[in-house]
Amino acid sequence: MKKSLFWGALTAAGLAAGMSSAATLDDVKARGTLNCGVTTGLVGFAAPNANGRWEGFDVAVCRAVAAAVLGDENAIEFVPTTGKTRFTALASGEIDMLARNTTWTFSRDVDLGFEFAGINYYDGQGFMVPKELGVTSAKELNGATVCIQTGTTTELNLADWFRKNNMEYEPVPIETNAEAQQQYLARACDVYTTDSSGLAATRATFEDPTAHVILPEIISKEPLGPLVRHGDNQWGDVVRWTLNALIAAEEFGITSANVEELASEPTDSPEINRMLGTEGDLGEMLGLDKDWAVRAIAAGGNYGEIFARHIGESTPVGLARGLNAQWTEGGLLYAPPFR
């Protein structure tokens, strides 16, 4: 599909072909690129580097899907979306999938007409305070001034939580994370609250990160995951099982280093064989070829590798696995069987 500015201008008046967008998988294959919605920039989750290449934890999901469907992890058009434009971009078909740390909620799933393909990060809202305040629990925050991003679920969670605990607070409304950092460091507020992954990333940028503590209380559930449009179940399955393949690969010990070797001939684990296509025809059922999972894993590694590279403890963001560990290690990651 040749995109031309001029024809866009001249034909847009209403001559456009009323192409149905039901079969997203076919559209993506025909187009040769995946349109993936990401944030305009969130530390560790999605950001362009100096060469303009998008990198991050959410971006890795896009790359895995592109590798599985198109065989090329770079055949992606990244569409930066803001909190306000993300859902219309997906609903209107401008993007094929949205991987933009979006919380899975009832109304987004049911009312807005989206399909969450799974959860790639279990987050929750937390609090950060300067250590010198001597606060050790969020229950001691009565009367505190709190920096909070307006128009987000965090604002509502905060109000709920303080009311539930019969405490008072004074909100300092801010617009962006960068503004929050400045306000917090300038002591315009005692407490900064947002998703705990964001708190960790913010704290890592401070000149002296040890002077600030993240309180143990997590006051909300924020399951973040990639989502697609309602009503195109085949495409939803592709995204869902690509994510599951990344999670299962970690469980089975398949990494980007050994995936080619494991896929070259059948191993003694039937489930690995089915996933990597040396046995059965799971790929065909998805509408892909049998190597789809191999390519998805080879693109950026399994879930654990992606986590470690972008937001894990060795990175400046420095997040522990916590809830995001495999179910075998006390976490919540639990990929359904490949059968």
Binding site: T40, A47, P80, T205
Partner: peptide
């Protein structure tokens, strides 16, 4: 930048999202 196009201000946000430069305003 509000509708997700990366003009200089939008880019400044994207640049701050790089772990190397997070915290620069």
């Amino acid at each position: 930048s509000i509708i997700g196009l990366l003009d200089p201000l939008g880019l400044s946000n994207a640049i701050r999202a790089d772990t190397d430069w997070n915290g620069i305003v």
